[in-house]
Amino acid sequence: MRADDELRVMTWNVWWRFGGNWREREPGILSVLRDEAPDIVGLQEAWATDETSQPDEFGRALGMHAAFAPMSLPPEPDPVETEDQRGVRMGIGLLSRWPVLHVDAVPMPSPDTTVVALSVTVAHPLGPLHVIVAGTDWEPERLPIRAAQLAELGELALMPALDGPLPVLVVGDLNAGPEADDFRKLTEILTDCWAVAADRDDDERTLSDENRFAPAEATLQYNRRIDHVLARPGHPGARIEVRQARILRDEFDGMPPSDHYPVVVDLALTVAAGAQDPDVASA
């Protein structure tokens, strides 16, 4: 188990129940999560039924705490492609090594769909850790909507209420590569952890032609790093130290677990004297 001043963060679009093979893919997702043992995981395109959700199922299997919020991005197929999609909701989720203290589904700009950011506070031993999980629009004709969503994410991450001893994290499938203007504007206020990592992969593509499930028709995202871990210091004098950033390309029984590859980032945490929240630290 990692020390309290080390944090492993993962983000992964797990492709809902698309592809007609989600039951075969799901053990591969669990295997990656078990092997990597992340402390925080942001999940996009997660599924939920009236009885349970994918984050809850993963949490039970891994001994982690879970949160979920429904959103219609992308929309569930209508009509359904397979019977096991019927009545199943789309959403975003979070897995945490530590208990979840607060969950809020924050509406994001969208004129005709329900898009939210999942804002979660977890009880890290060094103080409250704030994590925002997000997904954005991707179609070329909806680029202004994506830009508004990314701008709103930046404002949400900068809220003074999230100040504290630990970094504020924004993780998700943002459907924007590092070269996109709206993503570059976001990184003017948040640190792109991949870009500052002391050690990182040469191949940074998370939607890659090496993955046979990746949709080549998503021309603005294909063969780009569109899944991101971003952060900002929680208090003056703190800094973001990223030791390593990796893309995981594991296949199981010859099958990628999703159409996206997950991103894993290892951070070193620094807490200024007096910044620790004793109530949360003792939770």
Rank of each mutant, 00 (worst) to 15 (best):
Q44V: 12
Q44K: 14
F58T: 01
V116N: 15
F58V: 00
P111A: 08
A123E: 03
E45T: 12
W98A: 07
T52I: 01
E83S: 13
M90T: 09
S72A: 15
M108T: 09
A61K: 08
D50H: 13
E81H: 12
A37P: 00
G91I: 10
H102W: 10
I92Y: 00
L118C: 03
W98H: 12
D78A: 11
S53A: 15
R60S: 07
T113E: 15
A61R: 07
A61L: 05
P111G: 06
P99N: 05
E36R: 11
S119Q: 12
A37E: 12
A48Q: 06
M108V: 09
D104N: 14
S96V: 00
T121S: 13
Q54C: 07
H124G: 03
W47Q: 04
A46T: 10
W98R: 07
V41L: 05
I40C: 10
D112H: 15
E57C: 09
R89D: 13
E45C: 11
V100P: 02
D84S: 02
E57K: 11
D84W: 02
G42A: 10
E57W: 08
A105P: 06
P74T: 15
S53W: 04
A46Y: 03
F58A: 02
L101E: 12
D112N: 10
E76H: 09
T113N: 15
P107K: 08
W47N: 05
A48H: 02
A69H: 02
V100Y: 02
T121W: 13
M90N: 14
